[in-house]
Design a protein around this nucleic acid. Structure first.
Lengths: 347, 347
DNA sequence: AAACGTTATTTGATCGTTCAACTTAGTGAT
DNA sequence: ATCACTAAGTTGAACGATCAAATAACGTTT
């Protein structure tokens, strides 16, 4: 049998196409009696509205775009996997789908927006990795394209909580602060920080948390702060410097850096009973080598992002409106630094 | 200004809408002169055909579906990231986009197919992780839905190269065979294998490679074969067994298993000068701990999958037709097992 | 100059929905 | 009996493209 359409269904039921459309989109407009009859026929025939036709008429595709960042380290890949997965499930729950695209640079990403909006009729976008002076958010705001970002808008002057666009983020500073406090509690006083060059928003935030904890403890260690680009070798070299400067422990802005630092530390002295290197993101690598790390509630973040974005798209005004700006707290995954010797990571 | 459409453009140029449509879809039908004129106007106005309208008429969405598998270990997440990225880029190059969906089980996946075909008008699917008696491929074939799989069809009776559907796979057996040969060359004779329970296709294939290498060397070691479910702890326990049985080296079906095995090996004797544990997939974890591992050419696989799938979809008959079945060779990433001590993994 | 064959371009119909305006019937107030 | 109002359902038009068939333009041949 041919595929069912509104018209074919309407004919076989003796009602008009619009009535059926109403059963689907505005059930309250239809008399309960006929509604049941139609609903039954729909189930019977396996009818599904054509998204193309609907899209053409309503100008909504129920598709959200998300960019695949270029693969760099690979170490963070698993985080992305978890994020994408949670995003997909959440979107699916709200009747949306996720469309992937890849872009090498932010400029390229903006160029893709234009294309995708026309060619694929995307309804909105999920952004990741916001940073200082992000052109992407500016462009999207200017063109009034709905979007939500994982990452708050970074600005020296404006309060992220008064930002025009919705965002969800993890309080990285709170994470590194907690990590630093743990090291302090265990008797360390010369605690270094290995982070990225200033200007990256998320990176600066993590550095701030470390500094905050030290200041609260009355220990100042500004000379134990190293800025390097991400990567395992860079982390190892930075740790070398810090040890030379007297550091006995370090907090890092990423697991890649921490992994390098861990190698250097083990080269200098055997594994202590408590952590002396702490990473960020709690990647499987951290689990594998028994590296303590700040863990982001990434699945939760994904759900919230979809929540606020679909809310914006459905235009539900104020009813049950989710927070437009949301800062989630990370947790600290504490492990014991006996890579491949102890049992910590076997759990 | 209002968004350009075929009609608005046609009016401003004094030609008919169909001529413009032809410039886009069948340029050879248009006189070069008018074609240039139209092309110029298109560029000028930033016109992009509405995908919804086109989709409604042509019944093609230029969208391909791919399932997000449930996240298990996390260790393999980075592989998925690389795979998705390459897939997205390749698809983009051919004018297609990727739509994500998530499904917990194969049954669920099939259910989603039905929905997605109607609701999202997907043109085809990319499958991953094919296995014995895969219901998904059967369903798709039966309903004549275009798809290509990463993973050959596993069957005891039929030759995968005569399969009805296109697939691209990596010759895992060749990988473990090479890995085993490396260990043999270094003087090991009691080489164990830690793999998954028989029946998983890919897993059996990897086991076969190990056995092949041993047999070729005249060394039989059937008692050094352990079957466990994937995971780090399971790998550690399995290695314990194998060492008790006299094994001095192991080849594993995954990096998770290998990581566990590596821990056990280091517990028994210090790191040797050459690899004694070899994993599979060359995940970042392997890089991090200096674990040798069989590396799949995943980006290449992704490109080939898209290639064969888009070819099927465009119906280009025989012209430049890519191989319908493709078995790629993995490579062996050899590293030195001094986790966090040597410099091997800093490279 | 008429007939023909190509090539270039146009026109009408169609894909399957939803929107907006309209009809019809029923209810209750004036 | 008239009017106003709501509820239930109908109809024509529109969204923006492509397909199929018809027409116009143009150089060649007879």
């Amino acid at each position: 049998m041919a595929k069912a359409t509104l018209v074919s269904l309407a004919e076989s039921l003796g009602v008009s196409r619009q009535t059926i459309s109403n059963v689907i989109n505005a059930p309250h407009r239809v008399k309960p009696e006929t509604r049941l009859r139609v609903e039954h026929a729909i189930a019977e025939s396996g009818y599904r509205p054509s998204s193309a036709a609907r899209q053409l008429r309503t100008r909504r595709s129920m598709n959200l775009g998300i960019r695949m960042m270029p693969v760099v380290d690979g170490i963070n890949g698993s985080i992305l996997d978890r994020f994408l997965h949670a995003l997909t499930e959440a979107a699916q729950g709200d009747g949306y789908r996720l469309t992937l695209f890849s872009a090498a640079t932010d400029d390229d990403e903006v160029r893709q927006y234009e294309d995708l909006l026309n060619v694929a009729d995307l309804d909105g976008f999920v952004l990741t990795g916001t940073h200082h002076g992000d052109q992407r958010t500016a462009w999207l705001l200017e063109h009034e394209i709905p979007f939500a970002s994982f990452g708050r808008p970074w600005s020296d002057t404006e309060d992220p909580f008064s930002s025009l666009h919705p965002w969800v983020d993890v309080d990285g500073g709170a994470g590194t602060e907690q990590a630093t406090r743990l090291l302090l509690d265990q008797g360390h006083t010369a605690i270094g920080f290995i982070g990225w060059p200033t200007g990256s928003g998320a990176g600066d935030d993590r550095r701030t948390g470390w500094r905050r904890a030290l200041q609260a403890a009355g220990v100042f260690a500004d000379q134990l702060d190293v800025e390097v680009h991400d990567g395992v070798p860079a982390g190892a070299r930075a740790a070398e410097q810090l040890i030379a400067a007297g550091a006995t422990a370090v907090v890092c802005a990423s697991d890649s850096l921490a992994l390098g630092a861990l190698a250097t530390f083990r080269g200098h002295h055997p594994a202590p009973a408590t952590p002396d290197v702490i990473g960020f993101d709690d990647t499987p690598v951290a689990t594998a080598v028994g590296l303590s790390s700040v863990a982001q509630p990434i699945e939760d973040a994904a759900r919230q992002i979809i929540r606020v974005l679909t809310h914006t798209l459905s235009g539900d005004a104020e009813s049950g409106r989710p927070d437009k700006h949301l800062l989630l707290r990370p947790t600290l995954a504490q492990r014991f630094p006996h890579p491949l010797a102890g049992d910590g990571w076997l759990a």
